[in-house]
């Protein structure tokens, strides 16, 4: 394992050092004293484990394809921006636009996330990105979502789990939100659907992984309590135009 003390290192130099370690064949990198450095694990590919002590800056794991990233604190904005593969585990809260245009891989957040999380998520074939939020989310969750899965556990109380305008423009993918969702919180293009056995099976699996990552019990979360959200159609704005 390679350890880098990140204290006071400018992000460009830190990331250069990280890329060099990856090129040298490091399979496990511990970053200590991280304090807001941007773009950590940006476009890194391969089977590498990053452990981050402190708070990584914006665009953590942007375009990343494969590594595992464990954050032992909060994360800032734009985590997993356009990420293609790998796993991110955040032992705290994360900021806005997490998972923007995410194409694959998984992000587990122990706590809350900000606005515009999971917007433009995509999928094709077997490559399906997943975001699991342990706490609550801000507005515009899953906006313009074209694929992928978002799960919101709504801890600690399961009340007011998401913000407004959830799923506006959604035309693919699925969201599972704990509890009932008042209609005024949903975008016009989403609809609720009955949970199938397959959905329950998926939720059981993913929640159990969440519990393992954060060593939690979560006895009061029942899979049957989740509301499933899916797009009303694949062409939300198909009727908007007149051919001229």
């Amino acid at each position: 394992m390679v350890t880098i003390d990140s204290r006071g290192i400018y992000y460009m130099n830190l990331n250069k050092q990280i890329r060099q370690e990856v090129k040298n064949g490091a399979d496990e990198i511990l970053l200590k004293n991280v304090n807001g450095q941007r773009y950590i694990a940006d476009a890194i590919r391969g089977n590498i484990k990053f452990t981050i002590e402190g708070i990584p800056g914006n665009d953590l794991a942007a375009y990343m394809d494969g590594p595992e990233v464990i954050v032992k604190g909060n994360a800032q904005d734009a985590v997993a921006n356009t990420m293609n593969g790998g796993t991110i585990v955040i032992n705290g809260d994360a900021g806005d636009t997490l998972g923007y245009a995410m194409r694959g891989g998984e992000v587990f957040i122990r706590g809350n996330v900000g606005y515009r999380v999971g917007i433009h998520m995509k999928e094709y074939g077997e490559q399906i990105p997943t975001i699991v939020v342990g706490g609550k989310t801000g507005d515009f969750l899953g906006e313009y979502m074209a694929g992928g899965i978002i799960v919101v556990l709504g801890q600690p109380d399961g009340n007011e789990v998401i913000g407004n305008y959830c799923g506006t423009g959604m035309h693919g993918g699925v969201m599972y939100i704990r509890g009932e969702i008042p209609a005024h919180k949903l975008g016009r293009e989403v609809q609720t659907a009955e949970l199938t056995d397959k959905d329950i099976e998926f939720l059981e699996g993913i929640i159990s992984r969440y519990k393992d990552y954060f060593k939690l019990q979560l006895k009061d979360i029942k899979c049957s309590d989740f509301t499933k959200l899916q797009p009303q159609g694949t062409r939300p704005y198909g009727d908007l135009y007149t051919k001229y």
Partner: peptide
Amino acid sequence: RMIPIESDAISPAPHHDIYSIEDLTQ
């Protein structure tokens, strides 16, 4: 594009992570 077949490919007006010159820098 990694979107469903026959869906409209939607590219909204703003990048939803760019609301300023500083965000563009990012």
